[in-house]
């Protein structure tokens, strides 16, 4: 990208600082998208500067940037959108978390998804319980009838059918649950 030529060093510093802030906001985008947006903002600043007939470069630049707004504020929708697309493509928990946080205010649906993802912690809790209280955590049956799944106080006469398979089973369930809700998120987004 070609930078705008500015004569005053103060103007140069302001300009570079602004572009840096834009770039920082766009780090989660792909390189192509980031470059595209950066070029467009750069073009906006350039065109804005061309509208002035006087030579107060620094003042003019500041006016253009002020009207353009704070990058963090006006770029929010782009970032939130792209992040969801990225999250459902990569299945990366970090992307999913970021996407939900960014979209939280954009509708009730994302709050529902946040809750679903929070439910994953139940699985983590089960695994921790199995490690700390191995005897009281499991899939319990009494005379071939299902009694309880998880962590319970009173296990009189019950039989834990999973035993050491409990942790692998819970882990696998968690993974399946995670994949399911992420697929659901992808589906919601596509509509």
């Amino acid at each position: 990208m070609k930078n705008i030529e500015l004569t005053s060093t103060t103007a140069q510093r302001i300009y570079k600082d602004y572009l840096k802030r834009v770039e920082k906001c766009l780090t989660i985008l792909s390189k192509v998208d980031r470059q595209e947006m950066l070029m467009e903002i750069n073009s906006h600043i350039f065109e804005g500067m061309q509208r002035f007939s006087d030579n107060n470069e620094t003042d003019n630049l500041l006016t253009v940037l002020e009207k353009l707004g704070t990058p963090k504020e006006f770029l929010k929708p782009v970032i939130a959108d792209k992040k969801i697309a990225q999250a459902v493509r990569t299945f990366n928990p970090k992307d999913v978390l970021q996407a939900l946080l960014l979209n939280f205010k954009n509708g009730i649906i994302y709050s529902v998804f946040a809750l679903l993802y929070l439910l994953l912690f139940v699985f983590v809790f089960f695994i921790a319980a199995k490690i700390i209280f191995p005897a009281k955590t499991g899939l319990f049956y009494l005379d071939d009838k299902f009694q309880a799944f998880g962590f319970i106080q009173n296990i009189d006469g019950m039989n834990d059918v999973l035993r050491f398979w409990f942790i692998p089973f819970v882990t696998l369930s968690a993974i399946i649950f995670y994949l399911l809700i992420t697929l659901l998120l992808r589906f919601t987004k596509k509509k």
């Binding site: 947006m37 903002i41 009207k67 707004g69 704070t70 990058p71 770029l75």
Partner: peptide, 15 residues
């Protein structure tokens, strides 16, 4: 409007 808000909007219209 904050002029910058137009770019995300154009982005969406393009998408």
């Amino acid at each position: 409007i904050a002029e910058g808000t137009l770019y995300p909007l154009l982005n969406r219209l393009k998408k």
